[in-house]
Nucleic acid binder design. Structure first.
Length: 674
DNA sequence: CTTTTCACAGTCGCGCGGATGGGA
DNA sequence: TCCCATCCGCGCGACTGTGAAAAG
């Protein structure tokens, strides 16, 4: 790709107040310009489609402004290299930091429409499908949306089954992933596929789907999302929540989620990162589909409100099929990709067998996760605790948090969070605060001091293993005139700084560099994700004590023998180069994803082992990292490490940021397809 | 040694019943 | 005094991550 070309446009718009962009590269792009750039990118990408591509952008893209926050995991080594054990570190994407859409809007959408060349259409921005870099399967051929669909979801079985009824539905789809089924071309193609319209599909009604809580998903995705599976079933968190547009108001549709293997590998958490370990067992049988309880229903119904799958449960119990609750059967240590299916049916819920084209599938790469029976990466654990209302009891500063007046307490309750927006008709924005929060870190102004440092989303690439959302981001950016634009942000000049938003702080602390601790993860602000009015809490003492993390030491190899393939594909460029380019890459990331089709864009090369050169980099840190692999939370009073001030101060300008974000619904508005 | 299972403690909302207050 | 609406407290269930034990 031609990063140079892309960068300017790629850069995201961010409130300067918040990010303090100083980067020379950063440019003030207007939304329009951004779009144009993307076009360029897309073009470029398509041209290079066959070439080795790397996973790019996702990681960065993921870092939303709001998110940028705190991610602790990523830190820059003194030399500017990222030392975080986080998955994505090898990922080139990491270099790309920003994703437009994150900043611009909280909603990310993929249109099922065909990847038309229509530039104007946000969808067009994502050359999904075109980028075959993704896991192409044995034949190596790229999966086109249609192809993939067909392979995975045979018209006869899949769609037809659907029609009958929910129960049938589930049954019918149950083995969609069974042997013989192709893996969804995950990274790249996966997203692309879903986004791609099925040939002749929808008789004209092309739906557009927005991932409502995308920012939150991105946060997790950066660290490689993990989902607990238990015998009795465990809810997903983040849960899937979509907004759908473009449906026929009067037509009836079944909406369901299918979870398919994202790649052909078995994974294990070793050396602080996820690495492949043998082949996946794709013979696993069991229900893979969760039909939305409100199915079938009219297009008007589905479009009226957010479609939440908060009740969806994941289990590893093949025989478990609770009559009351649909559960999706998964296998531990396998990577999965949820996919949203919208199938037009008759009033009674029966699908039109004669017209399989009425099925539309949407895939959001950031929804990808690894099923586990116990959390492996403490970053994920912390994110879950910080964001999942059900886990409030595990928040270290919980006490102080709640000292605030009840009136100030906006945290959605476990039950209401999902329901509130789902049930109330027309309450499309009911969750606004929630989403907003995902973007914004609410911090007391007193923390403002560190604003400059936080200017860049932290975790850059380190984390995200798979990236894909960049495409989405790009689309979002293009689609919505970004309110904020961030240039390559990053730190001016020195490449070393690029990666680390917190560079200054971390380096200062020194502790962070070692990773012995989890730098304020958080997100305190994160913890308040659900607390729009977090400031009050902060005043109450929030942030004063945040659990420190203790790395869970793994006796295993410091580094995985085999780096995760696609997701974590290393950048061919030297690490150093990477860093230098990071600023550019960040911007490019968006473009890349767009062009590459998001995560999936990863080329076959991405599957190759990580270059030793990169490893060397890691090795440098390995001493530190090796120790780190898994982190465990410490008691509040715990290690001195956690005390680092930097952490607490994550985002300074948060207040301002919030103001901006709150100003208009526009921030949350949906993208409309041209 | 790794992975899975289980009991546990914690939070929350919901539902129920009782107490309270106002109006007829 | 009776009826009705509202408020409050309690118990229950749902849900979470933790950590130890069990299983492979």
């Amino acid at each position: 790709m031609q990063l140079e070309n892309i960068l300017p446009s790629a850069s995201i718009n961010l409130p300067k107040t918040f990010y303090n962009l100083s980067s020379s590269e950063s440019t003030t792009n207007s939304p329009g310009s951004a779009q144009i750039d993307y076009q360029d990118v897309e073009r470029t990408e398509s041209e290079t489609t066959n070439g080795p591509k790397k996973y790019s952008g996702v990681g960065n893209a993921m870092m939303g402004e709001g998110e940028s926050d705190n991610f602790s995991g990523t830190k820059t080594a003194p030399d500017g290299r990222k030392s975080s054990p986080v998955i994505g570190e090898d990922d080139l994407t990491s270099s790309r930091r920003y994703n437009i859409d994150e900043l611009g809007s909280d909603r990310y959408f993929i249109s099922s429409t065909q990847p038309s060349t229509d530039v104007a259409n946000p969808c067009s921005l994502f050359p999904y499908g075109q980028t075959g870099t993704v896991y192409s399967g044995s034949n190596g051929s790229r999966y086109s949306a249609s192809l993939h669909y067909g392979s995975v979801l045979p018209p006869t079985g899949f769609s037809s089954a659907v029609c009958a009824s929910r129960s049938q539905f589930a049954t019918g789809y149950q083995f969609g992933q069974g042997p013989g089924c192709l893996y969804p071309p995950y990274p790249g193609t996966g997203s692309g596929i879903s986004s791609m319209p099925i040939p002749g599909s929808a008789g004209g009604a092309r739906a557009q789907v927005y991932l409502c809580n995308r920012p939150l998903w991105l946060k997790f995705h950066r660290h490689q999302t993990e989902m607990i599976i238990t015998k009795q079933g465990r809810r997903m968190f983040p849960f899937l929540s979509f907004n759908i547009t473009g449906l026929n108001l009067t037509a009836h549709y079944n909406v369901f989620v299918e979870v398919v293997l994202a790649d052909p590998n078995h994974w294990r958490f070793q050396g602080g990162k996820w690495v492949t370990c043998g082949k996946a067992d794709n013979n696993m049988q069991g229900n893979k589909v969760y039909v939305h309880p409100e199915s079938p229903n009219t297009g008007a119904h589905w479009m009226r409100q957010e479609i939440s799958f908060s009740k969806l449960k994941l289990t590893n119990n093949k025989g478990a099929n609770n009559n009351n609750t649909q559960m999706i059967v998964l296998q531990s240590l396998h990577k999965y990709q949820p996919r949203l299916h919208i199938v037009e049916v008759t009033e009674d819920g029966v699908e039109d067998m004669s017209n399989e084209t009425k099925t539309q599938t949407f895939t959001f790469p950031e929804n990808q996760f690894i099923a586990v029976t116990a959390y492996q990466n403490t970053d994920i654990t912390q994110l879950k605790i910080d964001h999942n209302p059900f886990a409030k009891g595990f928040r270290d500063n919980y006490d102080s948090m709640y000292t605030a007046p009840e009136s100030d307490r906006l945290t959605p309750s476990p039950t209401d969070s999902p329901r509130s927006h789902q049930i109330v008709p027309g309450a499309r924005y009911a969750m606004q605060p929630f989403f907003q929060d995902q973007f914004v870190n609410n911090l007391p102004q007193n923390h403002r001091f560190y604003a400059s440092e936080r200017a860049v989303p932290q975790t850059n690439g380190l984390l995200s293993p798979q990236t894909d959302d960049t495409a989405a981001a790009a689309a979002a950016s293009a689609a919505s005139a970004q309110r904020w634009f961030v240039g390559s942000v990053q730190q001016t000049g020195s490449s070393s700084k690029l990666d680390l938003p917190y560079d200054g702080d971390y380096s200062t602390s020194g502790l962070l560099s070692s990773y012995g601790i989890k730098p304020l993860p958080l997100q305190t602000s994160h913890a308040l994700s659900y607390y729009p009015d977090s400031a009050a809490f902060m005043a109450a003492g929030w942030g004063s004590t945040r659990g420190a993390y203790q790395r869970k030491m793994t006796t295993g190899l410091p580094w995985s023998p085999r780096p995760s393939p696609p997701a974590f594909a290393e950048d061919p460029l030297g690490a150093k180069d990477k860093l230098q380019d990071e600023g550019a890459t960040a911007a490019a990331a968006a473009a890349t994803t767009t062009t590459t089709g998001g995560v999936g864009a990863a080329t076959t090369s991405s599957w190759m082992e990580t270059p030793h050169s990169l490893k060397s980099v890691d090795s440098t840190d390995s001493g530190v990292y090796s120790m780190v692999c898994k982190r465990r939370r410490l008691s509040p009073g715990g290690s001195s490490t956690d005390t680092s001030p930097t952490i607490k101060c994550e985002d300074l300008t948060t207040d301002e940021y919030n103001k901006d974000s709150q100003k208009g619904m526009g921030y949350y508005t949906f993208y409309t397809s041209p």
